[in-house]
Nucleic acid binder design. Structure first.
Lengths: 243, 243
DNA sequence: ATTTTTCAGTACGCGAGCGAACAAATGTAT
DNA sequence: ATACATTTGTTCGCTCGCGTACTGAAAAAT
């Protein structure tokens, strides 16, 4: 079903996979495989960033938490990108909280090493910048989406994004967790998810969601999914994994 | 009241002003002053980007427009930054629509020239990257804010951001226009604005808003304003113009 | 001066989603 | 097996903001 067991780890990350062999060879030594586990907090606001992460499985969420305890997801990173753009953008501390949304693995690199490599300005820099651009579009679209679209479409979109990045149709997620990401009530997610399940689009049970029909899920999603997806494919080339 | 008439134009833009003289001298020849007028569309999605803009007065909005005609602002650029980061991030076409929100002036530069200058990797690159970081935080915060905060707080925040970037307490804005930016009904803005006016915080009449009491406006704003503001000051140094 | 256009005030019914709460089901620990 | 904790189903009243529509006022055009 999945192919990444047969390949070297870095091939599962789109940025690393896109590197010319020579360049990759140089700093592969600096890449350290780590597990990322559910709910793990990778960055805390205002704390120094020690590492950046290239996920190979699983996803990381960028979260905005408010004084009253509410929190909303602003962006999502999976095997299509890198987590920690702030490092080469010139910040030593993290601006926002980042937590692991779907457990998995990542290759991590020390922040100072990344800065060095970025400065060399080769293909790697190019890739990181292009990814940054796609990431910005993702967040911008989310900003508008959060304002304009009802919960059903947003849930569908969010599940699609998860599946893209997780590289699997089996997602370990509770309604509660999804609610935090979408910035809504848990009950709201339950209702929306129930509709999708009734139509045979997803199936879930206690902390686990299976995407059964991606096609239909796309039809229920708001237009934001495709907008962002197109931008990612355009900037990072190829179609990622086509589901 | 304002000081920018006495200074060279570029001093009114925080990025340009922060450049070392040598570096600025090199490409000042490429900077062309242009007027930006209300409602003018600077970028259209998917169209090639020919110029980037360093506003000296006035502001530009990054807008997301949906199929149903709804639109929401995702970010705002004024004299604190540059408009067109996508250019050095590696995109030839604009990802999102950009329209002039408050009329004014900007120094513009050809996209290919900017790319060249960026590649030199000197202080200029540094500044642009740091600005990008701040910009990302702005959008991310907006994403969360749009989901979590009621209209009153958002309006206050938005006015503060305008004032910061416009460098003036006199803003030429209609409720209708603000509504498009905030992604709400015009009537909703009218109601929220009326409250602020009743408390003597702002005054408005037919397409014109005056900020009377910035302090109180801050108190009515959601926490998002300060969050983003701090990040800008931290990354771009100084306090911008302190109101 | 008069007409036309643009902008703001305001009201009404309505729906999405909120907060809160409780019940039921499904895992997990003992 | 039993007790416990977590996850989901579901409901209720309520609030915010929506869509719509109409009014009056201010400015611009004639």
């Amino acid at each position: 079903m999945s192919t990444h067991e047969d390949l070297p780890l870095h091939a599962s990350n789109r940025i690393l996979a896109a590197l010319p062999p020579a360049e990759y060879a140089r700093f592969s030594a600096y890449l350290e495989p780590v597990e990322i586990s559910l709910g793990e907090v990778l960055y805390r606001p205002d704390e120094p960033i020690t590492h950046v992460y290239f996920p190979t499985r699983g996803t990381v969420s960028i979260i905005c938490t408010f004084e009253d305890g509410k929190s909303v997801e602003a962006g999502m990173v999976g095997n299509e990108g890198m987590f920690g753009v702030s490092v080469f953008l010139g910040s030593v501390t993290a601006p926002l909280e980042a937590i692991v949304q779907l457990p998995g693995e990542a290759l991590r690199m020390r922040a100072d090493v990344l800065r060095e490599e970025f400065k060399r300005g080769e293909h790697f820099q190019d890739l990181l910048l292009r990814y940054t651009q796609a990431f910005i579009v993702q967040i911008a679209q989310t900003a508008a989406c959060n304002r304009a679209h009802p919960i059903d479409g947003r849930l569908a979109r969010w599940l699609l994004m998860c599946q893209d990045r997780a590289g699997s149709a089996e997602l370990q997620l509770t309604h509660e967790f999804i609610a935090v990401m979408l910035g809504t009530r848990r009950a709201g997610v339950s209702e929306a998810a129930a509709k999708l399940q009734d139509e045979g689009i997803i199936r879930y049970r206690r902390g686990h969601v299976s995407v059964l029909d991606r096609q239909k899920l796309g039809a229920h999603s708001c237009e934001c999914y495709l907008n962002v997806r197109r931008e990612f494919d355009r900037l990072l080339g190829g179609n990622g994994h086509v589901w």
